[in-house]
Amino acid sequence: MTQRNGKIPDILLEQYLLGELDKSKAAEIRSLSESNPEISARLAFLKASNEEILERYPVRPMAAAIRQKAEQSVVKKRSFNFSTLAAPAAAMLVLIVISALWAGGIFNPPGDGKTNMNSVKTDGEIIYTKGLEAQLKIYRKSGSVNEMLKSGDAVAVGDTLQVAYIAAQANFGLIFSIDGRGAVTRHFPSDGGAQAAKLAHNGEQLLDYSYRLDDAPAFERFFFVTSAQSFEIAPIMAAAQAMAGDPQAARNNLLLLPGGLEQHDLLLVK
């Protein structure tokens, strides 16, 4: 090994443990580890650290999160290209689709509490329209009027919010929010159960209770995590708690979720 001043770099010890150093360097480190307590202690630390990391961030969920993130970044890029290059055309398309749905009686305006956006009723049989995604909806209650809020809308302390969802193709779901103070609040299911709630499919579903905003600063971000299969709530809430510790991440980042789960979010600004 080339003469150096100071200690052997960690990178070389890492590669020694991985068996990816050339033979002469590996032999030198092996020899040093037998005679030099500092080297053997550092190698032992790395081994223990390996175990700690894999225990703290287990292989399967982490690999699933990486794969999902890779897929999401591809989707994001495609969405970006579509929206930036063909924004007017996209807006026209959306208008046409909404008009068609409206004319066909599929789309009912929000506010009646039981709109039916993702299903069509024919001869008593409900047919679920394909291609529609699950949706998270937030209304601001003001007297008898429910104002539908969109992501980025401003809200204030004391506003009363009604949370709703549309299941579309999803069968199970979890709704929670993170505020600018880092607090994570679970909204649905509200029974304290360990599993995600079975979603209702007959149109838009209002949660059983409304939600009064407290004085947490900056923002309130709602998440709707959905899946075709039942899933455990605890890992999702743990991911949310981890993200909530960093206000910037809580405001902008996506949750790290295992495969098979989708997320929908809505950010309200204070």
Binding site: D10, N50, I53, Y57, V59, I66
Partner: peptide, 13 residues
């Protein structure tokens, strides 16, 4: 999974 198991700790450190 295999790559993360083998190299994840190195990369995270």
């Amino acid at each position: 999974e295999q790559y993360y198991r083998q190299y994840g700790p190195l990369v995270l450190r």
